[in-house]
């Protein structure tokens, strides 16, 4: 029987999760090892974001368990199919996040706070792909960024990096 832990979101929702799944978070793993994780584990993460975090962790966990159970026979083809499945799953996951940027940023913060390196680098790559090739004005609009530069400052900085603005 798998050991279960109860995670409590910042808005007091309880999530029951297997230890193996949640141990991907270095922060929680450390809490468990230190014996600090008794009863409910309170987290500074909203229930909406925590649900996403767990969705990611379960998918990763699923992947590792399946690989352990594989025998070598027919593994190549199976791995290929699995890779396709994972790609598909990740694409869907990314599309949802691109559509709801608030969740995306919350998730970035949460992966930082929970110390989930795989999720953190996945999300950073996602945002990097979103900003690549865009002009400053588009990026400000995309992320609701206030432009704190004076027009003179902006002009000077743009001039300094002239080549980057040429096609």
């Amino acid at each position: 029987m798998a050991i279960m832990y109860a995670l409590k979101s910042s808005d007091n929702e309880i999530f029951e999760v297997e230890q193996k799944v949640i141990e991907q978070s270095e922060t929680i793993k450390k809490m468990i090892e230190d014996g600090a994780a008794t009863g409910e584990i309170p987290l500074q993460v909203s229930s909406k974001t925590l649900a996403k975090v767990l969705e990611w962790c379960k998918q990763r966990q699923h992947k590792t368990v399946e690989n352990e159970n594989d025998d070598n026979k027919g593994k190549r083809k199976k791995e290929r199919d699995e890779d396709d499945d994972i790609k598909e799953w990740e694409n869907k996951f990314s599309d949802e996040l691109k559509a709801d940027k608030d969740v995306l940023f919350d998730l970035l913060l949460a992966s930082n706070y929970l110390d989930l390196p795989a999720l953190l680098s996945f999300l950073c790559q996602l945002v990097a792909d979103m900003v690549a090739g865009k002009m400053p004005e588009e990026i400000r609009r995309m992320f609701n960024i206030e432009n704190d530069f004076t027009p003179e400052e902006e002009k000077a900085i743009t001039a300094e990096h002239g080549w980057a603005f040429q096609p």
Binding site: M135, R140, I145, T158, W163, A164
Partner: peptide, 23 residues
């Protein structure tokens, strides 16, 4: 540092453009 990490995954050209976005 998280924003820096994101920018490091783009390109030198993108990084230069991003300097104009905000302080």
């Amino acid at each position: 540092d998280c924003i820096s990490h994101i920018i490091s995954l783009t390109s030198p050209r993108d990084a230069c453009r991003l300097t104009v976005v905000s302080p």
